[in-house]
Design a protein around this nucleic acid. Structure first.
Length: 150
DNA sequence: AACCATCTCAACCGCGATATT
DNA sequence: AAATATCGCGGTTGAGATGGT
């Protein structure tokens, strides 16, 4: 039954950016039913979105207590520190940064990798992301400092 | 002004993990 | 026990923003 259902559903599903109206609707249904039963909320709210999409919108944007705006220097340092320790364990890192999401931190990290790649052409820059955790904490901090002093 | 390159970030996808029936 | 449904993670994409010539 799973396959046919997926096909039936995906035909009618909306994709792309959320509208304000959709946000309002999602928030009210999450307030009623909690932030766990996403497929149920998707169906019962009348939103033409998958449960997955609803969850993502909530955790990354609508969830109260989300910090907005640029990372503070403290947060930047924490990300580097934890990434050097754990690698691309974004949700684990996010758990240590109140108000920040895994998606946000992942984006932040990528942006910095790009900068580094553009500004210099050192061999380590060509490592696959999965290998980055091999770098030491101190090494990464030194690189970031050099960018900030540029 | 008009174009192309590069960046950013919200949202998507696949898939393994976890929950439910 | 096992099949099916749902969730959550990490990698990736692409439209719009921004920057450079």
């Amino acid at each position: 039954m799973g396959q046919e259902d997926d096909m039936m559903m995906s035909m009618a599903m909306r994709k792309g950016p959320w509208t304000e109206q959709e946000d309002v609707q999602l928030v009210s249904f999450v307030n009623m039913f909690g932030d766990r039963r996403w497929d149920f909320i998707a169906k019962v709210s009348g939103l033409k979105r998958s449960g997955k999409s609803c969850r993502l919108r909530w955790v990354n944007y609508l969830h109260p207590g989300l910090k907005r705006g640029k990372m503070t220097p403290q947060e930047e340092r924490r990300i580097l520190e934890l990434h050097s320790k754990w690698g691309n364990r974004w949700s684990r890192i996010a758990a240590k940064l109140p108000g920040r999401t895994d998606n946000e931190i992942k984006n932040y990290w990528r942006t910095h990798m790009r900068k580094r790649h553009k500004n210099r052409k050192e061999p380590y820059l060509h490592l696959h992301r999965s290998q980055i955790h091999l770098l030491t904490h101190q090494y990464i901090l030194a690189i970031i400092l050099s960018i900030q002093c540029k």
